[in-house]
Simulated assay, not measured.
Amino acid sequence: MNPVVHFELPCDDRERLARFFERAFGWKYQLLGPDMGHYVILTTAEQDARPDAPRGAINGGLFQRSADMPAQSPGIVIGVTDIRDSMRKVEAAGGQVLGEPMDIPGVGAYVAFLDTEGNRSSMLQPLMNP
């Protein structure tokens, strides 16, 4: 079974939205720079739901809305062991993979997809721990 390991939310003003979650729920955030697409990492729990940390909570992130990106809506990120195999399974099940996997430095390979109802989610093949 492939667990949900992360969530993502689109935003127009990343600092405003990050501060909202900090003030409303006590979440911590880290603003990343242009080399990481101005992504924002949200920490909702001290330990997340990665396979080596099975406490049931997940962390998330914010991404800047952009006219050249498809399906910019809230979504979940599903941890997979083989992203290419999972892409084939998504398509075989009636979904649509949105582009090719991109490498996120220090994290792993990532690609978004649409399910049969048009909901955007994504997959992450994490880098293996040394």
Rank of each mutant, 00 (worst) to 15 (best):
L62K: 00
F113V: 07
M102K: 06
P130L: 08
G106Q: 10
T116N: 14
R50C: 10
K28P: 00
L42I: 11
S122L: 04
I41S: 08
E100D: 09
G108K: 06
V77R: 00
G56R: 13
D82R: 04
R120L: 07
P10V: 03
V5G: 04
S73M: 15
N2I: 06
N59P: 15
T116W: 05
P74G: 05
G75M: 04
A57P: 07
P51A: 08
P101K: 01
S86R: 02
I78H: 02
D35C: 08
F21W: 14
Y110Q: 09
S66F: 13
A93Q: 10
S66P: 05
R14V: 06
D85L: 09
D85R: 13
P3V: 09
F7I: 03
E46D: 12
M128I: 13
P130N: 14
A112R: 13
G37V: 05
P105D: 12
L42K: 00
P3R: 14
M36I: 15
L32K: 09
P74E: 13
G106E: 07
V40M: 02
S121T: 07
R50T: 14
H38K: 12
F113L: 12
F20N: 08
M102N: 07
E91R: 06
V80P: 02
Q125H: 04
L124K: 02
G60R: 00
P130Y: 02
P105L: 12
S73N: 13
K89Q: 14
N2E: 15
P34T: 10
N2A: 13
P34C: 05
G108S: 10
R65G: 08
D82W: 01
A67M: 12
L127H: 10
P54G: 09
L17M: 11
P34M: 07
Q47N: 08
F20I: 10
T44L: 06
I78F: 02
T43R: 04
A57T: 14
P74L: 06
Q30N: 12
D52H: 11
M87D: 03
D85V: 07
G61L: 02
E46H: 04
P3L: 11
Y39A: 03
Y39L: 03
R19C: 12
P54H: 04
R84K: 15
A109P: 01
F25P: 00
A18G: 05
Y39F: 15
V107R: 11
L127D: 13
H38W: 11
T81R: 10
S121D: 12
M69N: 11
A109Y: 09
P101R: 04
C11D: 01
Y110K: 06
I76N: 04
